[in-house]
Structure formats: structure tokens, C-alpha cells
């Protein structure tokens, strides 16, 4: 994974600090072209990976990416599902109604595999169909890591239904030749559960920031877990919804051993450039500290960066 990964919350009015900012972003990114322009800026600043939810509009963005050879080396990490689509559907249609609405085809008749899955109440097969439905939009685009959104990861974690986490892991590997990733607000617990089910060194994306925001159980237990280097880790929400100034926020995560990548979203060239160059500078500084002969850290640490 690249050290810097570009996020998509800003494009869909997802802002954890302010409803007003959410609206301003929704207005700014009304047209898909506005999103593509910001992606172009990110690419120009040297970011080649875009981590995005399976929002309907991403399907249109993918059309643009497929049509232009300049995006050949551009990589997407899909995050599924786009939870609010399902959550609002469940309020309106109920659980059965939502399954009917979102499973591809008509589960009762046309889609043989779906029909069978339903009859046998094989929920893992049903999940696989939903993964296929969500992945359709990325056909022809490089997706080396495919993530399960935190609302689903953490739901399954709390319910103790780790079979689905394992099922997701295996299916993504087998069908898409990709690494399965898990987004979570509960890193220490998730890691324990995945390891107990035989998934070693999983790819995980978790909130990690200096303030402990959305780090369930607290910052200390997170720092201890991260230092153990038991997973390939992407840090998200590093600015804690804007509560930490960029330099301070990025210095904290860049200096942490055990974080492979840093995810951030931004809308302006200035902010993208600033964050990218801060991450590069802090990362470089750490590399240098490792090769300094007076430092006892080994070359292994150097390589892990």
C-alpha cells in the first residue's frame, strides 16, 4: 500500500465536524466533474490510491477513469457497502424488503444462485452476491484491497458473527484476487477476533489520532496494539474531524511505528499538497532516524516504512 491514500468523504458531504460544512461540500461537488478535478489534483501531487465507498456516484466516476488512459496506474480501494443506502431502506422497507430491493436480480426467480441461497438460508452466499453487486462498478479498474465498511465490520464484531468477516476475507481473495480490508472503530477487539479465526496480519483501517477520537477503549490500548504490528494498518480520521491542526495531527501518526498508510480527504490543491508534503517530510525524517548508526532501531523498521 502507498504511504498516502486519498479519501472520498468530502465529495459526499460527509463531515464529522459540521452540518454546514457538509452542505457546502454537497453543493461544491454536485457535478461529478468537480470530483474528477480534485482527483486529478491528488494524482498531480503524487497520490495514486483512492479509497472510496460504493456510492452510486462512484459508478459514474469509474466510467471517467476507465475512459482515459491517464488513469491507467490509478488504484481504487472500494469500501462497501454504502451504509446509509441500506440503513434508510431498512427503516422504510424492513430487512426483507431491503434484501429484495438490493440483491441483484429477483432473488425468488431469475437469479439462480440468489434463489438457491435464499431457499437454503445460506447467508454467506447472500453476502457474496451483495459483494458482487457492489463490485460491478469497478470492473476494469485495479482494486487490490477491498474494504468492509466500519458499520458492518463493527456490527458483525458486536454480534459475534465472525463467520461473515472470515467469509468476506476469503471471498475477496478468491473471487477478486484482492486483499480483504476491514474498516473499524474498534481496532483492538477486531484484531483479536480476526486472529482467533486464523486471519493473520489482516489489513485494517481505523481511526487513529492524537485526541483519541473514535478510538474505542481509549488511546492507550490503541497505541499498545499498534506497536505490536499485528496488522497492515491504515490510519483514518487523523485530524479528528478538524480538531487537531494538520502538522500536529500528521506528526503523531507518521511517527507511530506500525502504521503503514495514512488516509485523508481534502477538496483544495493547497490542503492536498500541504498534507501530502507533511506526511512525506515526517516519514522521511523517520527513515533517516532509522539509518542513523546511533539509533538502535534495526533495518526492519526502516523497511516497514
Amino acid at each position: 500500500m502507498e504511504r498516502v491514500i486519498f479519501g472520498d468523504n468530502q465529495f459526499f458531504g460527509i463531515n464529522h465536524s459540521s452540518e454546514e460544512k457538509s452542505r457546502a461540500q454537497a453543493i461544491r461537488f454536485k457535478e461529478n466533474q468537480a470530483i474528477v478535478e480534485v482527483l486529478d489534483i491528488a494524482i498531480a501531487e503524487g497520490i495514486q490510491t483512492f479509497m472510496c465507498t460504493t456510492h452510486d456516484r462512484i459508478a459514474d466516476i469509474c466510467e471517467t477513469l476507465r475512459a482515459d488512459s491517464k488513469y491507467e496506474n490509478f488504484t481504487i480501494y472500494p469500501c462497501m457497502p454504502y451504509a446509509h443506502k441500506y440503513s434508510n431502506a431498512v427503516t422504510e422497507l424492513g430487512i426483507m424488503g431491503s434484501i429484495k430491493q438490493y440483491l441483484p436480480g429477483n432473488i425468488f426467480s431469475t437469479l439462480a444462485k440468489g434463489g438457491m441461497a435464499f431457499v437454503k438460508k445460506d447467508f454467506i452466499a447472500m453476502m457474496e452476491l451483495m459483494i458482487d453487486a457492489e463490485m460491478k462498478m469497478f470492473k476494469g479498474i485495479s482494486t487490490p484491497v477491498i474494504f468492509l465498511q466500519n458499520v458492518v465490520t463493527d456490527l458483525l464484531l458486536g454480534l459475534g458473527m465472525s463467520d461473515f468477516l472470515v467469509g468476506f476475507h476469503h471471498y475477496v481473495r478468491h473471487k477478486y484476487k484482492a486483499e480483504a480490508g476491514f474498516i473499524t472503530m474498534n481496532l483492538p477487539l477486531l484484531l483479536n477476533v480476526l486472529e482467533s479465526r486464523g486471519i493473520e496480519n489482516p489489513t485494517i483501517c481505523a481511526s487513529i489520532n492524537k485526541l483519541g477520537f473514535r478510538m474505542s477503549g481509549g488511546k492507550e490500548v490503541y497505541e499498545k496494539t499498534i506497536a505490536e504490528k499485528r496488522c497492515r494498518l491504515i490510519a483514518m480520521q487523523v485530524f479528528a474531524a478538524g480538531a487537531i491542526p494538520p502538522k500536529e495531527a500528521l506528526e503523531y501518526v507518521c511517527n507511530m511505528d506500525g502504521i503503514e498508510s495514512i488516509l485523508f480527504g481534502a477538496s483544495s490543491r493547497g490542503n492536498i499538497r500541504n498534507s501530502k508534503s507533511l506526511i512525506d517530510a515526517f516519514t522521511e525524517k523517520r527513515r533517516e532516524s532509522f539509518v542513523d548508526p546511533s539509533n538502535k532501531q534495526t533495518a526492519d523498521n526502516y523497511l516497514s516504512l
Binding site: 463493527d154 458486536g158 472503530m185 474498534n186 477487539l189 477520537f213 473514535r214 474505542s216 477503549g217 488511546k219
Partner: peptide, 8 residues
């Protein structure tokens, strides 16, 4: 405050 478990 920080929760012990965070779902939504």
C-alpha cells in the same frame, strides 16, 4: 467521552 465500543 470515548466509548468502549463504537458502532454508529
Amino acid at each position: 467521552d470515548i466509548a468502549n465500543f463504537n458502532l454508529r
